[in-house]
């Protein structure tokens, strides 16, 4: 007697996800940054273990994980910010548009122009609002005339959603701005030189909820033009702003998935334990 596997009635089958949702969209996109087998060492201490990850163009990718898991270290490998720390060593590849940023002869200044960075604590220069945003344009000689410089500053401030709040006081000190405004000024400063990728290391962790909301709205707006990578301890923030989330633990990339999947049904138990607060 032959037996056949029972057929699951259509009624009880799991429907396929709509391929148009953000669940799958980010994975089909072209990779702006592709990292392969990346190891990173602080002296003898290995901070990253064989991380491989692709970051598609014009999405927001969030890195989450407990303190010391390597997410900020990994972020800084993307524009070689770790180079300035003595005794560090890296192996593996970080390809930006297919070119390894660690290959000999790489112009690191040009790399950091393409891959801008915003830090946890806003760090405006003790200069006017205008001069802060104009700084990168001036030292890189990216504008030919004063009017072009003014236009680029205005556009950067508009892109950072700060223009309306500061347009009448561009010559006042940047230090007179509130914490949230200072952080958006730093974003404007990073955007002024027209990077392709913006790295953000806990950009809203020192801000109140209103200022945080503005930064988050800005991040979502910026992804239309830029590829954004954000490190955050705030998992709700990762859930709100990112398309894709990567979870790091003890220097290893445990899971990278669409944010929607990550926060409703992650593939890895370690991820689930972390995001449900059962970690450890």
């Amino acid at each position: 007697m032959s037996t056949t596997a029972p057929t699951i009635p259509t009624r009880l089958r799991v429907p396929e996800r709509d391929p148009g949702t953000r669940d799958s969209a980010s994975f089909g996109a072209k990779a702006k940054i592709a990292v392969r087998d990346l190891d990173f060492y602080y002296g003898k201490s290995q901070a990253l273990h064989g991380v491989s990850l692709q970051i598609p163009e014009r999405i927001v990718m969030a890195f989450i994980g407990p303190s010391g898991c390597g997410k900020s270290t990994f972020l800084r490998t993307l524009n070689r910010m770790n180079d300035v720390i003595a005794g560090t060593r890296v192996s593996g590849e970080v390809l930006m548009d297919g070119v390894d940023v660690y290959q000999p002869g790489t112009d690191v200044v040009e790399l950091r122009r393409k891959v801008g960075m915003v830090f946890q604590k806003s760090n405006p220069f003790p200069k006017s609002i205008f001069d802060n945003v104009a700084y990168g344009l001036r030292i890189n000689r990216l504008t030919a005339t004063k009017s072009e410089l003014a236009e680029r500053v205005e556009q950067a401030l508009k892109d950072a959603a700060l223009w309306n709040e500061v347009k009448d006081r561009l010559r006042t000190s940047a230090l007179s701005l509130s914490g949230g405004q200072q952080q958006r000024l730093c974003i404007a400063r990073a955007l002024a030189i027209r990077p392709e990728v913006v790295l953000m290391d806990e950009p809203a962790s020192a801000l109140d909820p209103v200022a945080t909301h503005k930064i988050e709205e800005l991040i979502v707006e910026l992804k239309k033009q830029y590829t954004i990578v954000i490190v955050t301890h705030n998992m709700q923030q990762a859930a709100r702003v990112s398309d894709t989330t990567a979870f790091f633990l003890l220097g290893k990339l445990i899971e990278v998935n669409s944010t929607e999947k990550m926060f409703t049904n992650p593939d890895e138990k370690l991820t689930e334990d972390y995001i449900t607060g059962r970690f450890g």
């Binding site: 998992m235 709700q236 859930a239 926060f263 409703t264 049904n265 992650p266 991820t271 689930e272 995001i275 449900t276």
Partner: peptide, 9 residues
């Protein structure tokens, strides 16, 4: 508590 993953479900 903002539950996530299986807790949220």
């Amino acid at each position: 508590r903002q539950p996530a993953a299986r807790d949220l479900r």
